[in-house]
Computed example of a mutant assay.
Amino acid sequence: MPTLKQKPKQRPFCFSVKGHVKILRLVLTVTSMTFFIIAQAPEPYIVITGFEVTIIFFFIVLYTVRLDRLVNCVFWPLLDVINSMVAAVFMILISMLALIPETTTYIVIGGVFGLAASVFCIADGALIYRKLLFNPSGPYQKTAVHDRF
């Protein structure tokens, strides 16, 4: 009698490494935005971090509820990688602009949290990029035809 192999259960998104990085990215961006709001920083600081909080929250809900599996017409990992890289650029730019003049302590703290969030944006993009590869375990190895037989 043949034995049936059970499929290994997939971990929920919130308990995966990608989920932890994305949630940590959300927490750091919210903290940065909070310090910018408390310090009454210029509006672009608050608006850009607010947009990033909204987009990160959208992706967390999307992956948690598994909507990425239901909506197949959009390639979600590619959108997530593009978002991560654009967010990293904007967060680095905003954080550097916040750190250069050193106007108030809260703006400097918000800039430091923004730089930490940009590091996690890059890490999040790298983790999701591995999902884009068809062979996520490593680079493509080309073999000769005569080696297959």
Rank of each mutant, 00 (worst) to 15 (best):
P101Y: 00
K9V: 07
I56D: 02
L24F: 09
V71W: 07
I60C: 00
D124G: 10
D147Y: 10
I92R: 03
L79F: 06
G111C: 01
F15V: 14
M96W: 04
V89Q: 04
L97R: 05
S95E: 05
P12R: 09
I23D: 09
R148P: 01
P12N: 08
I56Y: 03
P139D: 09
C121T: 02
G19A: 00
K7M: 15
A123W: 05
T49L: 07
I128K: 15
E102M: 11
V74E: 08
R11S: 13
V145F: 14
Y63P: 07
I56G: 01
Q6I: 10
R148Q: 12
V53Y: 03
T104A: 07
F75A: 10
G125C: 01
S137L: 12
T49S: 11
A88F: 07
P12Y: 04
N72W: 06
K18A: 08
G19C: 02
G19N: 01
P101Q: 01
T3F: 09
L93F: 05
T31A: 13
T103V: 14
K9L: 14
G114R: 00
V17M: 14
F134M: 13
F75P: 09
E43R: 15
D68F: 12
D147S: 15
I23A: 09
T104V: 01
V89S: 11
G110E: 02
Q40D: 14
P101G: 02
T143M: 11
W76L: 00
V108T: 11
F51E: 03
G125E: 04
P44M: 04
F59E: 03
L4P: 08
Y63K: 05
T49I: 03
V112H: 06
Q141I: 15
L93P: 03
G19V: 00
K9R: 15
K142Y: 12
E52V: 12
